[in-house]
């Protein structure tokens, strides 16, 4: 499977229920290697659920999710394979508060990838430099600003050498002045060829970075297309209304 055009993530008819509430209604989505997808939509539209299904933080009830040729199922081997390929950055950072930045970054490489302490440490420093906070390595998460914490969280995913990164509203819990530093790191990642799916309301980032925009509403993918097309000429009324609200607030 070296075909660049073959999708690395393919979702077919994916549905997800929370009790009686249907969070995803038969969603189809394809993501190619190196593609940057930005998912937007009003709150409760199912965009977080969509990406959380990809690494099975949520279990979908029907449909198929195929990541790098592996179909996501109850088989633990498939899950291990997919989680190995897919990293995730959370809205609330979810750093391990009792571990230093360095320990946050080396835990996975040492326990999962079997790296030695020195190897894991070297890798951690490489990625900390990439997110521009190598000097914070021995601090605890709470000693860092929100923006710095989120950059550590990004570095933690990178340390696992994931080929696909999922971002679940990575800037929504940040103060305005810290949003830029996180988006900058993400933009840099995007130019490095990482496959990214980003749930965000940052339309400036979407315009600049996205290859593909996905607009969701009420559990459905309402509109998909390149940003220049969907921003200037949204096909659906729902997306047009949403864009209006978010751009002219």
């Amino acid at each position: 499977m070296t075909d660049q055009a073959a999708p690395v993530i393919e979702m077919r008819g994916v549905s997800k229920f929370f009790g009686d509430f249907q969070a995803l209604k038969s969603v189809d989505l394809q993501v190619a290697r190196g593609e940057r997808v930005v998912v937007c939509g009003p709150s409760g539209s199912g965009k977080s659920t969509l990406i959380r299904c990809i690494n099975r933080l949520e279990e979908h009830e029907s449909g198929e999710i195929i990541v790098e040729g592996t179909t996501l199922s109850d088989d633990p081997a498939s899950l291990d394979k997919i989680r190995g390929a897919v990293g995730m950055v959370f809205q609330q950072f979810n750093l391990f508060p009792h571990l230093t930045v360095r320990e946050n970054l080396t835990l996975g490489p040492r326990r999962v990838l079997g790296l030695s302490e020195a190897e894991a440490d070297a890798r951690a420093m490489t990625y900390l430099e990439r997110v521009r906070i190598p000097d914070q390595a021995d601090k605890l998460p709470r000693q860092l600003s929100g923006g710095q914490q989120q950059r550590v969280a990004i570095a933690r995913s990178l340390c696992m050498e994931s080929r696909i990164l999922l971002f679940d509203e990575p800037t929504s819990a940040l103060d305005p002045e810290m949003i830029a530093e996180v988006l900058e790191v993400m933009t840099e990642l995007a130019t490095s060829g990482m496959t990214m799916i980003v749930v965000t309301h940052e339309m400036g980032f979407a315009r600049k970075v996205a290859d593909k925009m996905v607009f969701m509403d009420q559990g459905e993918v309402v509109e998909v297309g390149p940003p220049e097309q969907v921003f200037t000429a949204p096909k659906s009324k729902r997306f047009a209304t949403f864009l209006n609200q978010i751009l002219n607030h």
Partner: peptide, 14 residues
């Protein structure tokens, strides 16, 4: 312990 801690651990395959 918040659910996010488990999710973060899962996302790095622990």
């Amino acid at each position: 312990i918040a659910r996010g801690q488990y999710e973060a651990a899962q996302s790095i395959s622990l």
